[in-house]
Nucleic acid binder design. Structure first.
Lengths: 188, 188
DNA sequence: GTCTATATAATGATAGAC
DNA sequence: GTCTATCATTATATAGAC
């Protein structure tokens, strides 16, 4: 595997990642991905044998991306409360994507769950990475006992905001809820 | 259109409704629906010409079902606060379906939005029916000015609970959040 | 590593006998 | 109203030339 090959493989995974998010897993075909990357369908199978293999790679990449993002936040924000507020701020920073396609984590988990897909557990792992990180931050502001409950609640509230925002294409709602969530964290 | 025809048509719509919820719209084929009803694929087209036509009928039925349910609640619960608490109680009453497939309204809206489907607006109409009804109840307990904001917030929170519950298959989380939501309504 | 076929199955959809 | 047969298209997937 030389440099060129690695790069092309990465391009395929990135294109699949985007399309699974924007169109959904089922609705995305090999042709869609191949077209987005600019390679022939046949060549496609040199990198991935099945659609399942691509999903494995996409989920792996997403988990890596999430871990890298949380590491960045840990460096940038020393205070646990500031980290919690940064988490909520994803909604604002990704508002246009959320308005169009909802949350990439939540919508993929929902779809794979309905498909009774073998990789549903790997998708939920994305939530788990966030949850464990959020628990640490809640514990850090003196809610060690409630950390689990609060972490799940915060994720759920952000999921709800994402879903309603995309259903209504209403970013004003998103901003109102982010404000309220920030105040909630502030007051804990 | 005789009685038998009406009944068979209703059976098709009911089967499609269930399958769109449990498997998703894209993942459900004509064969799936025909098999569930117990009729041949060919006969199927006597009732619906396109998959789009079935979705129209399913969305129509869902909206009718929601309106009928809210009318029932209006009769059963005279107090607006009791009505709001009844709304939240859907989560508990449908807990096993939610654990397996999430919220039928939210997940269909998300999928049709990603597909850039022409009927996405009709799906969001389901949320609108709930929202208008919730607004009335919030206004009825003295939150006329905040009614819009609170209605959307309550729907979003229930969506978040449904999504996390299904991702984790964690009905304990659902019960904890329902308890918290009931207290929130109680304290308003 | 990349391409052009091509195999195979399933999909949405139609025609027409009964 | 119901069925069988069939079509066109698209999907995943493979073989093999270059």
């Amino acid at each position: 595997m030389g440099e060129k090959g690695e790069t092309n493989r990465q391009r395929i995974v990135q294109a699949a990642d985007d399309l699974f998010y924007q169109k959904g897993y089922e609705a995305t075909s090999f042709s869609d991905i191949a077209e987005a990357v600019g390679i022939a369908r046949g060549n496609f199978y040199y990198y991935f044998k099945t659609k399942n293999d691509i999903l494995v790679a996409v989920l792996q990449k997403r988990r890596d991306d999430i871990r890298a993002m949380l590491d960045e936040w840990d460096k940038e924000y020393p205070e646990p409360r500031a980290r919690l507020k940064r988490y909520i701020l994803i909604l604002v920073k990704s508002q246009s994507e959320i308005e169009n396609f909802g949350c990439p984590v939540g919508s993929l988990c929902t779809e794979l769950n309905k498909l009774r897909h073998a990789l549903h557990g790997e998708a939920t792992e994305m939530f788990e990475i966030f949850r464990l990180w959020l628990e640490k931050q809640f514990a850090g502001i003196g809610h060690k006992k409630d950390a689990h409950k609060l972490a799940l609640r915060l994720m759920a509230r952000c999921q709800g905001v994402s879903l309603i925002t995309s259903a209504y294409s209403d970013v004003d709602f998103l901003h109102r809820e982010v404000e309220e969530l920030q105040q909630w964290i502030e007051g804990l």
